[in-house]
Simulated scan of single mutants.
Amino acid sequence: MTPDILCIGSTLWDIIGRSPTSMRLGSDVPGRISRLPGGVAMNIAMTLRRFGMTPALLTAIGRDAEGEELIAACDRMGLVTAHVYRSDDLPTDRYMAIEGANGLIAAIADAHSLEAAGNKILRPLEDGRLGTEASPWPGLIALDGNLTEALLSDIATSPLFAAADLRVAPASPGKAERLLPLLTHPTATLYVNLEEANILAKAQSSTAPQAAAALLARGASRVLVTNGGAVSAEGSRDGGVIEGAPPPVLVTRVTGAGDTFMAAHIVAEAQGAARQAALDAALRAAASYVSGEIGS
Results as ranks from 00 to 15, higher is better:
L130H: 05
P124T: 09
L180Y: 10
R222G: 04
M77A: 12
A134N: 14
I199D: 04
A201H: 03
Q276E: 13
A268I: 01
R86F: 12
L143D: 04
I108V: 13
E293G: 08
R94M: 12
A41L: 09
R49S: 01
A233Q: 00
I199C: 08
A287Y: 00
W13R: 02
G239H: 14
E269N: 10
S10L: 15
G26K: 11
D110T: 02
S296P: 11
T207A: 12
S113M: 05
D88M: 12
M77S: 09
S34T: 14
A169L: 12
I33S: 09
T157L: 07
A41E: 00
V223R: 05
I44N: 08
S34Y: 01
A109I: 01
D64H: 04
G145D: 04
A213Q: 14
E196V: 03
L190K: 01
Q271M: 13
D93N: 14
A208I: 02
P3H: 03
G131F: 04
H265Y: 12
V29C: 12
Y289A: 03
T252K: 15
V241N: 05
R63M: 13
L25N: 12
A217S: 13
G9H: 02
L114W: 01
T255I: 12
L48M: 01
P138K: 06
V223W: 00
L283F: 07
E195Q: 15
D75W: 08
L152Y: 00
S113R: 05
I121L: 15
R50P: 02
L58E: 05
R63P: 06
G67N: 01
G78P: 03
L182R: 03
D144I: 00
P186N: 10
N227I: 04
G38I: 03
L70D: 03
T92D: 05
I5K: 00
A164N: 06
D165T: 15
E66Y: 12
A286P: 01
A97Y: 10
S153C: 09
F161C: 05
N146A: 13
V225T: 07
A230M: 10
M96Y: 13
A264K: 05
A277L: 11
V80K: 06
G26H: 11
A176I: 02
V267F: 07
P247N: 12
L215M: 14
P246I: 07
A203K: 08
D93K: 01
M46C: 11
V290T: 10
G17D: 04
D93E: 10
L143T: 02
G128I: 07
P246A: 07
D4N: 15
N102Y: 08
S87T: 13
L279P: 06
L166W: 00
A41G: 12
T187D: 02
I199A: 06
A188N: 05
P37A: 11
A73W: 13
L183R: 02
D28P: 08
G272P: 07
L216R: 04
A164I: 01
S288F: 10
R284P: 05
G118T: 08
L152D: 02
L125V: 06
G78Y: 00
L36N: 08
L194W: 03
L12E: 02
Y85I: 07
